[in-house]
Amino acid sequence: MSGRPKRLNHPKSVYVVGLVFKIITLTVIIAVLYHLTLSHHGPNLLTPLKTKIEEKQKSEIMEEVQHLEELEVHRHFHNIAPFPEMPENLRPVCFICHSDYPHSKSKKVRAMLNMHTQFFTCEACHLEEDPGLKVVFNWYNPQDENPKGPFFGTDYDSETGNLITVTDKLSKISVFYKKGDKLESTIQMQDAPIAIDYMKIRDKLTPDQRDNVKKKFHVRIKPKGHECKKCHDRNSILDFRKLSFSDNRRVDLEQLNITGMITKYEMFYLPNLFQGE
C-alpha cells in the first residue's frame, strides 16, 4: 500500500468536460433508441404498439370535428383572426350545454344574435327579471372583478374608422341587480352546486331525465331574449355612456346607422321580426 502514489482530485474543469461527454453519449443513445423504435426511417420496432394505443384512444367524432374545423379555415377564405377564449371553467353554466353559437332557429336573426354573444352574457338578454329589483348593465369579466376597459367596440379608431383595437377582448356586458350600493351578479357559474352536481351525473341520465334537469338551469331564463329595439333605440335599456361607449358609437348603435345617412331608426325596427318562422 505504502508504495502507491496518492491520487489527487481532478480539477473542476474535468468534471465539466465529463458532463458534456455524458450528455453527448446520452443523446446518441436516445437518438438510436428512437431510430430503432418509432422513427419512420428505422425498423419501427414499436410502431405497431403505438398505433394500437392510439387506435384505442381514437374518437371518430373528435377526428371529424377537428377535420371539419380545419377545412373551415380553408373554406372561409377571409383569414380568420385568432381570438382569445375564456377558459372553459370560468364560463357561465350555459356553456355546459350551449356553445358560443347558441341561436339556430330563426334564419333572419340567428347569426346576428350569435354575434351579440361576443360582448353580452346570455343573461343580459335572457334574464327573467325579478320585478321587485332594479337591474343595471355593466361590464363583467370573471378574471377581473373590476374591469376598466377600454372595452371591445366602444369607440372608433380615428385613423382607420374601424373599431378600436383593445387588449381586453373577454369582458362582456352583463346584467346585475342593484341592491343598495352593491351590484349582485345574475350569472350562474359552473362552480354553482347544481352545476357541479350535474357534471358528475350527466353521463348517467336518461334523455327524459336530462330534459328535466335542463329546466333547472332555465328557471330564471326567458326562452326569447330582448328584441333589437330594446337596445338599439334612443330609449335603450343600455346606458351607453355609463358603459363607456363614445358618443359617436352610441349614436350609431342607438340608430343602427348603416351609412350615417339614414337616421330613421324606425326603418330598421322590425316589430314582427320575432313572430313567425
Partner: peptide
C-alpha cells in the same frame, strides 16, 4: 355586422360556420 367575431352559427349538419371578416386584416 361581419366585423364581429361571432357572427356565425352551427348549421343543420352540426358544422360551425363563421362569417367573420376581420376589418383590420
Amino acid at each position: 355586422c361581419h366585423k364581429y367575431r361571432f357572427l356565425g352559427r352551427i348549421d343543420e349538419h352540426g358544422k360551425k360556420r363563421n362569417y367573420n371578416v376581420d376589418e383590420n386584416i
